[in-house]
Nucleic acid binder design. Structure first.
Lengths: 395, 395
DNA sequence: GACTTCAACGCAAGCGGTTGCGTTGAGTGC
DNA sequence: GCACTCAACGCAACCGCTTGCGTTGAAGTC
């Protein structure tokens, strides 16, 4: 009942293994009566085909690989979730690969770990180098990408450029004239392709509106809350301040909100903020943002991958997922008072705004101590009082 | 160079396939000179052993399954990340299974999908039914659990009871006498085992301190931000209000903070809040919480799983991961003014606090519309002005 | 120098399926 | 009644690797 082989089933049903195989596979050539006998025998034995034997005999693995640069970040977790559902539904196995640091990435692509192992590969937003692309091609299985487009591979993307442009256009429409961007750091180890595209959209909107752009309206940071904080702190130290900030992703926007709250700038009265992604916490903060359905993108591309992995000679496609702007409470018309003037009346609290991310990533010490009263420098909440009243004034 | 077999390597090296196999596997019986010739031949051919053939011949799959009830929630993503690193490092494959709804779960456990497919299984915090446990046992491979303990299976857990107790004790030490809990909904579809344990710790702390407990100090919600909001709203509608809230997880605490901010209760002056988990956003909110290193737990249990999957007759172990309390800015001594009195002086803004999660989970419509000006009822930020000054007063 | 010993290596039998092809036998047309 | 057809099924050869066992030949022993 446990590890029955096809021969056991054949014996019990009084036929040959070939007939069992044909019957179970449904390729025909087996009479209805025999099929039923075989089905019953297999059922009673709790028979399962051995994947290993199946793979060896057929040459197909019934497996797809999903390769992710991050597992815990919202976008990737969401994408993975969507893809998993489709892959499982198709009866395929999902092999998960996490590309941690560059070293692992190196090892991964050089030694063909996936060779003979999968029928298809799904990569998430990695900018691939030429050797990497070559390595993937030589796998000789369909490759699909999410968030990036590569010649010869299928992909699903949102239109980052026009989406970002739309978000910034929203700020323009509200009357903003000095719109800053806090952008992803191009030195990002995983070489995201997204940040530059969103910046292009930002620039396009400014250009179309005839508004100023340039280095003094740009700041960079990691694609995280802390990165957003650092970029915003940087921005607030400039000579002339913007009246609105476009964050390339919601996490960065959260960081911006926190810094703004800490220095006493009201949102949106003193500064508008718009994010990108519609992260689950975005509605929590009332963040105006560009929404995309990442799980759906995972489903779309996984569906395509499954199709091509199963041999239907599907040509590479480029899928586009829709986005839409969600206007919430962090954007509004600019006031005449400049942020600089507002800040002038307060103490410059910006200095202490260094991230405590380093501390948090260390392992928990003092496992059983009592109330160590750990109070990190950043232990101050975000948001501010004015924000809470925004809705009433507007509504 | 692409799909070389062991025979190709053997021919090139002028030996038999057996020697190639032995050499590559390092089992001895091959001279140094021959080994080197074989290595060179394999190298030049880009040879990789066929996993399918290897599995069929050896009977071991070189694969472990990781089964998750959620992929996108912080805890599970973190756990998966930790486990993945160890599994990959051990040279095993990681098959990912997501147990979506109950139906999928049913199908999953009944038909032995994993039979003959994996050398080990890692399950994350699911309360298993007896048939499910039986099904897992009949797989006849090591099974490891994270977050739950089951007889005969290895597991890694934090001590939820004592950790929760410590968190509540912290509130007691600050002088709180009416401490409420916002707890996970026991009707949770995935049957988490965690909420009741944390509640037990809460009750133990109250009991030890001789403080009141009971239904009027308890409210329930989902293990999410929205669940925390709903539970808090519920709590605030009681006759007598607490001076502190223990949230069973940080997400619920975030929800509590938002509701408190909206109704104008200052944290921690009017209400202390303590969470559990040290979610990445916890430091953002300055949330006092119990920290646990989930990725490390993933690594611990995965390491054990790998060991037992590789045949070392390791006995089931019960691993305990440490936790520690992190005191930040959301807890403080209670003031004499009761929350009730404070609320009496304000308009009851609690009514509109229904979650907008339903809307968010729907697919993005209006893909190309311009500025739909969607302003959900909840579009107000959390936190409040007073919070920001806590540090100065305390420090 | 004959005999033992043992490292080094090849042979061949699996592992559990799939599948091309050959065989069988009942049903058909004449 | 006989050749023919074709559905139904079995045979056996793979798929690519591992591994027990037998063989070989050089080194060591007395």
């Amino acid at each position: 009942m446990e590890k029955a082989t096809i021969k056991d089933v054949a014996d019990l049903a009084g036929v040959s293994p070939s007939s069992v195989s044909r019957s179970l596979r449904g390729v025909g050539g087996v009479s209805a009566a025999t099929t039923e006998r075989i089905r019953a025998a297999a059922e009673s034995l709790g028979y399962t085909v051995s994947p290993a034997a199946y793979r060896l005999a057929t040459g197909r693995t019934g497996t797809v690989a999903v390769v992710m640069p991050y597992l815990t970040r919202w976008f990737f977790a969401e994408l993975l979730g969507g893809a998993e559902a489709v892959v499982r539904e198709a009866g395929l196995d999902l092999l998960l690969y996490h590309l941690g640091d560059t070293e692992i990435r190196q090892r991964y692509f050089s030694s063909g770990i996936l060779r003979k192992r999968v029928d298809g590969v799904l990569l998430a937003t990695l900018a691939l180098s030429d050797p990497e692309i070559h390595a993937l091609r030589s796998l000789d299985v369909p490759v699909c990408m999410a968030g990036t487009e590569v010649d010869g591979f299928s992909s699903v993307c949102i239109d980052d450029v026009s989406s970002a442009r739309r978000a910034v256009q929203h700020l323009v429409n509200l009357g903003h004239e000095r719109i800053a961007i806090i952008a992803g750091d191009p030195r990002e180890p995983m070489h995201f392709t997204v940040p530059p595209r969103r910046r292009d959209g930002y620039l396009a909107a400014l250009k179309a509106a005839g508004l100023p752009a340039g280095p003094d309206l740009e700041a960079q940071g990691a694609f995280t809350v802390e990165g957003g904080e650092e970029a915003t702190v940087d921005l607030l130290a400039r000579d002339v301040l913007p009246t609105a900030i476009f964050a390339e992703c919601d996490e960065m926007a959260f960081g911006a909100l926190r810094v703004l709250g800490r220095v006493g700038l009201r949102v949106p009265e003193d500064m508008s903020v718009v994010g990108f992604d519609n992260h689950p916490m975005a509605s929590y903060f009332g963040l105006t943002t560009v929404a995309q359905d990442v799980a759906e993108q995972g489903r779309m591309i996984a569906w395509h991958l499954v199709r091509s992995a199963q041999g239907n000679g599907a040509k590479p496609v480029r899928l586009r997922a829709p986005t839409h702007l969600i206007v919430r409470a962090t954007t509004g018309a600019p006031t005449r008072r400049t942020a600089r003037a507002i800040l002038a009346g307060r103490q410059p609290a910006v200095a202490g705004a260094k991230s405590d991310s380093a501390r948090r990533s260390s392992r928990p010490a003092r496992a059983n101590g009592h109330d160590p009263l750990t109070r990190p420098p950043m232990a101050r909440p975000a948001g501010n009082k004015r924000l809470a009243t925004t809705k009433e004034k507007k509504g």
